[in-house]
Nucleic acid binder design. Structure first.
Lengths: 340, 340
DNA sequence: CTGAAAGCGCTTACAG
DNA sequence: CTGAAAGCGCTTACAG
């Protein structure tokens, strides 16, 4: 290993002082172009690479932010993560990524490690079992700004979809179609689940439509989970007019399980879902889904965090941004007709 | 902002020297438990957070690795990224993530930024237009070890699927079914594309099966791309026995476009693909796909990189690992019967 | 505009 | 086992 080239070496080679070289690296206009040229040439010749880590130490900031999501196999989360990257990258930040895999302990471990690495801020899609107080304590101790994404806990900056509203739009659509019973399937206990259920009930129950969403209908957020949840429902001898899946991924399993039992989605039973990932439009028949616009959630979340980083952060009150959902009606509900 | 608590503060509060405190943080066994206790108590009371960045500067390493992928909406890439995380996280590394969005210039910018941030190593799924020499120069100048994933360029450590072999398995399957013409659709010019085409030709042409894969059949790796590519083929009045899509994502568009033209996949035309993501098994009818095992690619890539980081790295010759593919036969091909 | 000095928060020999 | 000193590679006032 060749010994590392430092700014000191560069300044010597260019015949200037270290501070001058430092100013040149950072593109200061206080240095005459002729001098800057000499320095840049020396850098090229020596193969100098800027050690931003050292600079960061001195400046007590890192131009780094931590993004913690549960996973990215779910395209909703993947799009969200890429949107965060887009915004923060353009602002000169580099992202530390961590996957909690929906394990609260792992999440806390990741947070701790990122804080030790001096992240300037944190963007978190919280794991299911997250203890909000513990998280708050952890980040406050290090006074690291944090913005929560997609799953809300009071007291934190937050960006997410307006789940209640989206579910209401869907509920109204289903009741207009004539559905009398709606099963809400899949998903784990989480704020977003509760919000979606709330929206469905609020829009359906006043019109006399039954909403089934007991605990035994919960499932992992996977096709297998959705299939199993539907199985549990059917095994009780219950056949709803419509199935609303917790998310597109869950709905995939619902489609499969329906067919295994000889039912055709969109004809024998209406099926709808949340997220409107590629999966929804790609199904046969195409599936009605409530679009949550993960790109907007991610981008807006990154923006809120940048705001915190700019100002003397502490004073701003809790920031909240809810992304307006949109109901994408497709044949999985549109072609369904009430049997009565 | 409270002034930052340093090890110095901790050592004073605990009545020991700074070096002692430092050893305690790192869990050295050379410090008697009684002393260590005092130090830990002081840390808790003061709310000390370890500044790993400072430690890294002193130790001239960062315990950080850079992972650059093109994107993660494609579940193949998402699974690969999560597998990399799994391995490196367990080894105590934290990941900087970057998305090149398949833009070579953006990729180089990200590489530069990560090198400035002193990553210990780099794992890259190279962007399409990557200039391998430029990349090699860039990382060599900083002597940062690098492992390439999924898209190969000679001279680099590499882990990827055995694309040629996987395509051969698929080709043999199709010719055994009696297909006489096979269209290879979608994808952008890249090593993996060339390898897949090579495997198809190697297994099909000797048996007299025609392989169509002209440039106009290329497309972006998206459902829309696949649909458009199939459209271009049909508009030429060509109807192959089988369509092989570059990947599951492309195949999704192929399914859609076939139906738009009144053809049923698996009955009127055989359809197969690569990657075997959730998409493949989730299609109706389920789609034959060559599994590339992204988790294995990611995990193995991370392992190769760790190896480079352990040793005096420079001396090891180029490392290569090819993950054995597996052909998942499903009804999109299995139920198809030759018209002749 | 430039240079010498101090400091960011840690770790690493080196004596005791 | 502990302590004083030097150093990782930068940046930041502060004089000139």
């Amino acid at each position: 290993m060749a010994p590392r080239i430092t700014l000191e070496d560069v300044s010597k080679a260019a015949g200037v002082s270290r501070s001058t070289a430092s100013l040149v690296v950072r593109g200061s206009s206080r240095i005459p172009e002729s001098t800057a040229m000499k320095v840049r040439e020396a850098m090229d010749q020596l193969g100098y690479v800027y050690n931003r880590q050292a600079a960061n130490l001195r400046q007590s900031r890192s131009m780094t932010i931590g993004l913690i999501v549960t996973e990215i196999i779910n395209p909703y989360f993947a799009e969200l993560a890429m949107a965060v990257d887009q915004i923060t990258h353009d602002a000169g930040y580099t992202i530390f990524i961590g996957y909690s895999r929906d394990l609260a302990d792992r999440q806390h471990e990741i947070v701790a490690s990122m804080i030790e690495r001096q992240v300037d801020g944190l963007l978190i899609l919280p794991a299911l079992g997250t203890d909000p107080e513990r998280l708050a304590k952890q980040v406050n101790a290090a006074s690291v700004p944090i913005v929560l994404l997609a799953r809300r806990f009071p007291g934190f900056d937050y960006v997410g979809s307006e789940n209640v509203q989206g579910a209401q739009m869907l509920g109204e659509h289903l009741s207009a179609l004539g559905a009398r019973t709606v099963a809400f399937l899949g998903g784990r206990p989480a704020p977003s689940l509760a919000e979606r259920e709330e929206g469905l009930r609020a829009s359906l129950e006043p019109k006399g439509v039954e909403v089934w969403s007991k605990e035994e209908l919960r499932s992992p957020v996977s096709p297998e989970g959705g299939a199993a949840a539907l199985g549990r429902l059917f095994d009780q001898g219950k056949l709803p007019d419509a199935v609303v899946a917790y998310s597109d991924i869950v709905a995939q399993g619902v489609y499969d399980e329906l067919r295994r039992r000889g039912l055709e989605p969109g004809r024998d039973i209406a099926v709808a879902s949340f997220d409107d990932t590629r999966i929804a439009a790609g199904q046969v028949p195409p599936m009605t889904s409530v679009a949550g616009f993960p790109q907007q959630v991610g981008a807006k979340g990154a923006e809120l965090l940048m705001t915190r980083l700019d100002d003397g952060n502490a004073d701003i009150p809790t920031q909240l941004a809810l992304i307006e959902p949109q109901l994408k009606i497709r044949s999985s509900t549109a072609t369904w007709r009430s049997r009565s």
